[in-house]
Simulated scan of single mutants.
Amino acid sequence: MTNAVIVGSGVIGLSIAYQLLECAELRPEKLTIIAAHFPQDEPISHEFTSPWAGAHFRPFPHRPETYESDERESKYTRVTYNIFKRLAAEHPESTIQFMKGVDLLEDPPVEYKTLGPGYNSDSLEKFRKLDVAELPRNVAFGCEYRTYCLNAPVYLAFLQEKVRSLCLAHGTKLLQKRMTLNALKQVYTMFPDCTALFNASGQGLQMDGGFDTACFSIRGQTLLLDVPHTTKYDRMTITHQDRLGNWTFVIKRPTADGSAAQFILGGTKQPDDFSVMPRDWDSDALMARGRVLFPELMCDGKFRVARVNVGFRPARRGGSRVEVERSPYGPVIHAYGLGGMGYETSLGVATHALKLYSSTCPAPKL
């Protein structure tokens, strides 16, 4: 019996599970997902990054210092984008909504100004550089393109349900085991029938224990807003960067049942900051910038803050790791270290992981 084991139940792990079950040639007879946290857990743990996300697709040009990883991860985002178009059409309950994306920069790097690779009409739909007359005060550069927003917790629950229903439909035995692993090799002790191991553990749990030393966390604090009235942000997502490097963005959180959407106002990017408690000064700074940039989100001159979100993006120096490790216990397909690009890259990473799986592991007997 083929038993594919996935470590991690965030957006990367569940995307791998979903893609694996969708592919008849690779579909295992048994699927095991091991994680300390699962979608729909209450309360949401700060150790579980995926439910706290925005989430939307915001492309950026390849930077000279990280060109190789930027190029690779950009390709992941385009694969995800194309699959999301199908999911949005066929599964409105996924909450994926396509809309206009706008980037506004006060002091743009040269790769933006020259519309470098990854940030032009070659791979972005409805891409257009804004005219000077269209730019807000103090903004030196702007572009628009077609993008999407989604409701992270609801989308995770959608993926989890798709995994369950696909297993039921195709006779794949599903086991979801809640535990914290200390080392990947524990998987082979618990499941000696493991024929493939996908490591979607975010920070990169290693075979003999510990985490990938190239991995680090980026703390993000955002505000979840109730906005009972209609605004232009129902149809667009905007990201603004000021001269000091502060990123301020508004992301719609669509609903699956037609009820009023909420919005994310963000955010912070604080590497190696492990404070799980919301900080008033971070929230105050976000609201101060939001009052200037996105005043339409306020009600009677104030933001209605439903919750302060604190999450930790699992980033990696040198870019994400999506590759095969041939360990003494068996092959491991690593898929971690995506930082704040988990949703944007999710199905592209899963597609790559499955290609590695098909070239490394024996095909299941159909």
Rank of each mutant, 00 (worst) to 15 (best):
M190Q: 13
C194Q: 08
T195C: 07
A196P: 05
L197F: 03
G202W: 06
Q203R: 05
L205A: 10
L205P: 11
L205W: 03
Q206N: 10
G210T: 06
G210L: 06
T213F: 04
A214T: 11
F216N: 10
T222I: 07
T222K: 03
L224E: 04
L224D: 03
L225Q: 08
V227G: 11
P228L: 08
H229K: 14
T231V: 01
K232W: 01
Y233H: 14
T237V: 15
I238G: 02
I238H: 03
D242T: 07
W247D: 02
P254C: 10
P254G: 05
D257Q: 08
D257L: 08
S259H: 13
A261Q: 07
F263Q: 10
F263E: 03
I264C: 11
L265Q: 09
G266V: 07
T268C: 09
Q270E: 14
Q270A: 14
P271C: 06
P271F: 11
D272T: 04
D272P: 05
M277E: 06
M277W: 02
M277H: 00
P278V: 07
D282S: 08
S283H: 00
D284G: 05
A285L: 11
M287Q: 15
M287N: 06
R289K: 12
R291V: 04
P295L: 05
P295N: 07
L297C: 11
C299H: 13
C299Y: 12
R304C: 04
R304V: 01
